[in-house]
């Protein structure tokens, strides 16, 4: 059929073409791989880092932020406090759905500016109905609208957190003070936690966040609001870079109706304890057994 020489020649041509095609096809892959640093790829899990290694990583992250975003930031890794267990309550009787909390979160936590990302999603609900099926999140009329009430939803920091259970690499866990955190340097981006969360509390970085340097909040935490890398999952941490220093979360301070109450569940004199003991309190989707630390209550 074909002479040996022709066959060899065809093979050589085919092989060369193939190699060329392979080199071309692999180009973006190589480009991606060459941008990775060995240090970064081999970095160990948060819980395995010695304090020295951690401070080195923090300085590195600060330098990276400067190089990439042009902002001088300070990143800390503040451990939890003994005798502190955070709880959060939200008064549905007074919330007006203005989304100021979502905005404060957006600013505080260095969210991507293009997508208006925020860890808080506010549902406009029908008065007299508890069916989220009839809720709406992208309302744009003046609020509060007649016949509506508003239910902001954010991470409930569940004590029996489905997201923590499903993570195959322990990249997300519950801290001693009750906050569920993500090690952005360990997450593999499988998004199983996003599928598992019943509260739509988790967000994935579909691209690297875009924030102008002058809008970056320089006060950052390793486990909370430092600018996240692309390809990992993030979530509300009750602003732990603030709350672990004794400060209130940003969403609470921004609320114009005082609907939010935050504090230490282990302190019997705390505001949050008073609410839990004296108000009509419920948790969202209690039937799922997630045991949230985020409570809704009504004025009575």
């Amino acid at each position: 059929m074909s002479s040996p020489t022709r066959r060899v020649a065809l093979k050589v041509v085919g092989g060369t073409l193939g190699a060329g095609a392979f080199a071309y096809a692999a180009r973006p892959f190589v480009q991606w791989a060459s941008a990775l640093s060995v240090d970064e790829v081999l970095r160990r899990h948060y819980k395995e880092l010695t304090p020295d290694e951690m401070s080195q990583i923090l300085r590195q992250l600060e330098a990276d932020t400067k190089a990439r975003y042009g902002a001088d930031v300070h990143i800390e890794d503040l451990p939890p406090q003994e005798g502190v267990s955070f709880g959060y309550a939200l008064n549905l009787s007074v919330c007006i759905g203005c989304r100021k909390c979502a905005e404060a979160c957006h600013v505080e936590n260095n969210h991507d500016r293009r997508t208006n990302n925020s860890y808080i999603r506010v549902l406009e609900m029908d008065q007299g109905s508890f069916d989220m099926e009839r809720g709406q999140v992208d309302y744009d009329h003046a609020v509060p609208a007649p016949g509506k009430y508003y239910m902001p939803v954010q991470c409930h920091q569940c004590d029996n957190a489905p997201c923590v259970k499903v993570c195959p690499v322990e990249a997300t866990w519950k801290e001693p003070d009750g906050v569920v955190v993500v090690d952005y340097n360990w997450c593999i981006g499988c998004r199983y936690c996003e599928a598992a969360c019943p509260y739509h509390a988790r967000r994935f970085n579909w691209q690297a966040p875009e924030i102008p340097a002058d809008q970056i909040n320089p006060d950052q935490g390793y486990l909370s609001n430092r600018i996240r890398p692309k390809g990992v999952v993030e979530k509300c941490t009750f602003c732990l870079h603030r709350t672990r220093r004794g400060q209130l979360p940003a969403c609470l301070e921004a609320c114009p109706t005082g609907a939010r109450v935050f504090g230490n569940l282990l302190d019997p004199d705390s505001e949050i304890r008073w609410v839990l003991e004296h108000k009509r309190v419920y948790v969202l989707k209690e039937e799922l057994g997630t045991r949230p630390r985020f409570f809704y209550f009504f004025d009575v």
Binding site: H45, V169, I188, G189, K230
Partner: peptide, 19 residues
Amino acid sequence: DMGRPDRLWHILPGIGRFH
């Protein structure tokens, strides 16, 4: 489907942190 396939080793039993 992984956002960070460069961290694939995290999922290796014994080497990464296998949940």
